[in-house]
Design a protein around this nucleic acid. Sequence first.
DNA 1: TTGAAAGCGTTACCAG
DNA 2: CTGGTAACGCTTTCAA
Lengths: 341, 341
Amino acid sequence: MKRITIRDVAREANVSVTLVSFVMNAKRDKDGKLDCPVNPDTAKRVLEVAQRLGYRRNFAAASLRSGRSNTIAVIPNDISNKFFAGISRRIEDKAHELGYTVFFASSDESPEKLSEVLDAVLAHNIDGVIIAPVTGGEHVITRAMDMRVPVVLLDRDVETINEVGKVLLDDEEAGRMATDELVGKGYRKIEMISYTLGISSLSERETGYRKAMMDHDLYDNAKIHYTTYGDAAKDVERIIQDALARGVDALFLPTYSLSAQVLSVMKKLGLQTPKDLALVGFDESDIFSLYATTVTHIVQPLKELGERSVETLVRMIEGGEAEKTVLKPALVAGGSTEKRN
Amino acid sequence: MKRITIRDVAREANVSVTLVSFVMNAKRDKDGKLDCPVNPDTAKRVLEVAQRLGYRRNFAAASLRSGRSNTIAVIPNDISNKFFAGISRRIEDKAHELGYTVFFASSDESPEKLSEVLDAVLAHNIDGVIIAPVTGGEHVITRAMDMRVPVVLLDRDVETINEVGKVLLDDEEAGRMATDELVGKGYRKIEMISYTLGISSLSERETGYRKAMMDHDLYDNAKIHYTTYGDAAKDVERIIQDALARGVDALFLPTYSLSAQVLSVMKKLGLQTPKDLALVGFDESDIFSLYATTVTHIVQPLKELGERSVETLVRMIEGGEAEKTVLKPALVAGGSTEKRN
DNA sequence: TTGAAAGCGTTACCAG
DNA sequence: CTGGTAACGCTTTCAA
């Protein structure tokens, strides 16, 4: 069961390897015609022989010779996180449609792991990289750029870097939507819990919240509580009790993990939403529909985020400009923001 | 910014490319000594030069020449599903530890997509494949075997195929544990909802349930309702109402999706667990702890499943025998199986 | 429209 | 222990 090479096909079809290579690499134009300088009859014959013999291009050889790989890498912070799970398939599908293979690897927030992943990127002749949710460390981007690999930033902006593609959510709008929903339903003392991560997505959501509060002349009521990913469990309980003591009537939670944390604490304390506290959560989860009261939440257009990031990257790989796209969030209404009586 | 090749290193270190190749491929043994037929001093010099020049092996060239890639592929049915999200990181970490890179791609249940993925596997000289949760279609495995690529089946058995590695959950035990828990807490009319998928994991869980019911002399009460993934939403509501009408007091849900579906219907119908219906769910989710009453559920040892599958595959790649591992599930107790009064 | 031949950077083989 | 050299299978000139 020897492997079929381009030479086998050439011999069997009575043509040169060059011709076979041409035919195998030709893209079909809209008429289904092969777009290459080969006699159509010859091309047809080559295609038939290749098919019959079960020929498949040896990827390593092609990559070695051409220096390209038709492969892109996607480096999320954690391949198993919520946001990424929803977006990975979209990326995969779109990449496949454009003729690229995708390669996933977690950076894990660790500079060492990140460095290894990037070495792998170099070693594999990978054509471009999509860097998805990462909290902390701009090294990724600059290192990748040093390697002259096209980069697209997904979900999170780094304002100091501009030679990369960007596909982002309009996070300010998300913060504004959440706040407007609460105000519209009669809530006034609306506060927010956020992480001290210093990443653009969160700070923009905070900005949206602040501006909306200001627009509604509620800025004196605006207050953002901060916690860290690791301390959230204990901080959130304290924050909620403090807020209730001060008469706060609603909370905006700008990430899924904070939303889950808050629901957990409220359950533990026997608090009900919206009676004791109205809520707006973030991202998608069965929890929002299965919690005692359904929870209003902001959703990101995962499909578009994924597809757009691939399109942007491929365009850059093929010599195009780095583009920036900002997509709109949406609000899914639930019982947690029911009109206040 | 020319790329540094093995030849550059050889010239700079005054040795042949052969020596450099030896050194770069040598694994360190436990003493940190390089395990290769090269003078330690020479090796050290080569290493230093390589470091200084920033040499990185060209993956495509190595793969082309050696026919191997130190890469394994993982093909789940859906890269974004629950089970897979929890296991992917474990696979990645373990593979990395053993010197392999991982490549993820969804088969998506579609034979065409599957075929494409396998072509990619061949084209990339991939050394082995882990096939994770797939519902329907044994083609995968036989196709991969035809390609002479080592295969490990993860989570789901195909009894007719034996030349592959297998890493499975003791699904019969899982069914038994769930049933025993319910019986132990005083429930008697225990039923089960399952999918008509004909996959081993589900049918084994059913077997465990049946056997446990038999052991407790409750076999006359045993009943399994069937639905399909697509029809679950409407079927589950009917099933629950029918069950309640017949005085059923507990349900065992052998998958996460069925668990979520049942919780959703119960919420909609205003039913409470365990008062109206005791429940045992499956797999991990925030839902189980955040639902009005916490839900007892069976968990799989995701870490072990992931690591073991990689270890098994790598052993096969390196010429070892195909092994079969069966891991034990665990039960996480919650309020949904509180003792019946 | 076709083909010959020169590499791409590595590893494997065989000598020393 | 060390080194020369022939592949690996493909793409890419260049010439016909």
